[in-house]
């Protein structure tokens, strides 16, 4: 093809090919667009809305909006960053995110994005919802307090592991993660630490047992550099798994 099609993100020309989303094109060009529910290995979900960008003056989620020639995209104005911070604040007050007591702290994407957007407080009134912890599995603990309903485990278990271990039930504020077993317990499914679904959680909802706080504070994934430089936690988990 002679003429390379491009979009413009924050003044920078970014090439794309037919069928790519704005997120695909941005990631390929190493332009960071914040995201939680997006993982390039899976079908876009568009639920967390953290990747909100302004495309020719209209708000769209970069992970689901197709790239089209000539789009002018705002990915970093104060307006966009304020919106993302507000989304994060809503996610924080909706669950029970107690960072000092969470093993994922320091390598949590929700927390890292909050740092990236300069979130100093949750701003809103906390829901303090009553949620369970499922410790029935011998190797994995499932903490519903921290689930942000990104559906990455649902997609991984369904599309890659072919096990359908997870699902989301309910609507709106009643939406919640459930486990596909008569008992509702993770220990009664075929879930394993070998599963893709074990390695994709961006927060501390799915965590390994028998180890904790192994990396000292100061040396964790997002301790020294922001997520825009370090990238997704899942990508690093994969590297470790194959190391």
């Amino acid at each position: 093809m002679s003429d390379q099609q491009t979009i413009t993100i924050d003044g920078r020309e970014v090439p794309f090919t037919e069928g790519q989303t704005i997120m695909d094109a941005a990631l390929a060009a190493e332009v960071y667009v914040p995201h939680l529910c997006h993982n390039p290995e899976f079908v876009p979900h568009g639920s967390c809305r953290l990747c909100v960008v302004k495309v020719n003056g209209r708000f769209q989620s970069a992970c689901t909006a197709p790239a089209a020639a000539g789009q002018v995209i705002d990915n970093s104005s104060d307006e966009i960053m304020d919106m993302r911070r507000t989304l994060l604040q809503m996610l924080f007050v909706e669950g029970n995110h107690v960072c000092p007591a969470c093993e994922k702290s320091g390598r949590c994407q929700l927390q890292a994005l909050a740092y990236y957007t300069g979130m100093l407080s949750p701003h809103f009134t906390h829901f303090f919802p009553l949620r369970r912890i499922d410790a029935s599995h011998p190797d994995v603990v499932l903490d519903f307090n921290r689930c942000i309903l990104c559906e990455l485990c649902v997609r991984a278990s369904r599309d890659v592991d072919k096990k359908n271990v997870f699902g989301i039930t309910g609507r709106g504020i009643n939406a919640k993660l459930i486990v596909n077993a008569a008992s509702g317990k993770l220990g009664d499914t075929g879930f394993s630490v070998e599963d893709k679904a074990f390695h994709v959680c961006p927060v501390g909802a799915i965590l390994p047992k028998h180890k904790g706080f192994e990396v000292p504070i100061g040396e964790r994934l997002y301790d020294q550099q922001p997520i825009s430089v370090v990238g997704d936690v899942a990508a690093h988990d994969e590297e470790n798994a194959h190391a």
């Binding site: 924080f92 029970n96 107690v98 000092p100 906390h126 303090f128 009553l130």
Partner: peptide, 18 residues
């Protein structure tokens, strides 16, 4: 000024809210 996790979001003491 709210200083620290507990002042900001309830922190560890707020775990009793469960």
């Amino acid at each position: 000024v709210a200083m620290g996790a507990c002042a900001t979001n309830g922190g560890i003491p707020a775990m009793r809210n469960q």
